[in-house]
């Protein structure tokens, strides 16, 4: 596979099929890696090249999707003679962009607070999480809601955030048998991860609460409340507040 190490910003570029390229900056969940991914994403979105479709951030890499037909036509327009592959063409564009990456630039993070009604029928696994970690349910709620979480990526389901930064003190393994349906808005824990289910899906996370906030907004652009790079906070609300907010948000 064509892979090349760049001198300036350490990364590798490799194909994901014939219509996408993956730029990998590291191999673990680290802020410095996230930062490079976010900087490159912003750069590409500010000045998209012809044939650019979008880029999808993940923990260690950014995947750039492109239309190889547009790339091919563009390159024939500009040089007309020797045709290289669309992948090679996109790679050279990205290499140039990477030279422009200002790594010392500070990222600006948006903070989004998500209200959560913890426990009881809203969080059927809260007691299990407390027992598992030798804590009271109030302590679990406290630890979960004082945390600040970085959204590394959105995936799995529309608007679903992969959040980093969960306290080890409340980390809990997935349920041994997954639920057939998890309601939209469920807040859960799986290992060292926490997240919110934007739509109803099957899933194995330990459910500790429920938010009235909608994370997937199909009629709004962007359709996801959260974006990679957002800081997410959880704010405990009462049953009463939850019900009032549901009325205001419309039917969930």
């Amino acid at each position: 596979m064509p892979e090349k190490l760049l001198k300036k910003t350490a990364c590798t570029l490799s194909p994901l099929g014939d219509s996408a390229i993956v730029i990998t900056f590291g191999n673990g969940m680290e802020y410095s890696v996230h930062k490079k991914i976010k900087l490159l994403k912003d750069l590409l979105e500010d000045e998209p090249f012809a044939g650019f479709i979008e880029c999808v951030p993940a923990y260690t890499n950014l995947t750039v999707f492109y239309d190889p037909l547009v790339i091919y036509k563009e390159q024939n327009k500009s040089n007309g003679n020797e045709t290289t592959s669309p992948f090679e063409m996109v790679r050279s564009i990205l290499e140039m962009k990477l030279q422009d990456l200002k790594e010392d630039k500070k990222l600006i993070h948006r903070t989004v607070t998500i209200p959560v009604c913890y426990g009881n029928e809203y969080g059927p696994d809260l007691e299990y999480v407390a027992r598992y970690n030798d804590l009271t349910t109030d302590e679990v709620i406290h630890i979960h809601s004082i945390g600040e979480y970085l959204a590394y990526m959105i995936g799995f389901a529309p608007g679903f955030p992969f959040l980093g930064g969960l306290s080890e003190n409340i980390a809990t393994p997935r349920r041994s048998s997954p639920r057939m349906t998890i309601p939209a808005g469920a807040v859960g824990i799986a290992g060292m991860q926490t997240g919110v289910y934007p739509i109803s899906t099957p899933g194995g996370w330990q459910l500790i609460g429920q938010t009235p906030t909608k994370l997937f907004l199909p009629n709004v652009n962007p359709p996801s409340l959260l974006q990679a790079g957002d800081i997410v906070k959880f704010h405990p609300i009462t049953d009463q507040e939850y019900k009032e907010m549901i009325l205001k948000e419309g039917v969930q």
């Binding site: 479709i53 979008e54 880029c55 999808v56 959105i154 529309p158 608007g159 962007p222 990679a228």
Partner: peptide
């Protein structure tokens, strides 16, 4: 739908 994968939209 093209361009919405980054939001988790298939």
């Amino acid at each position: 739908r093209k361009g919405f994968k980054q939001h988790g939209v298939i």
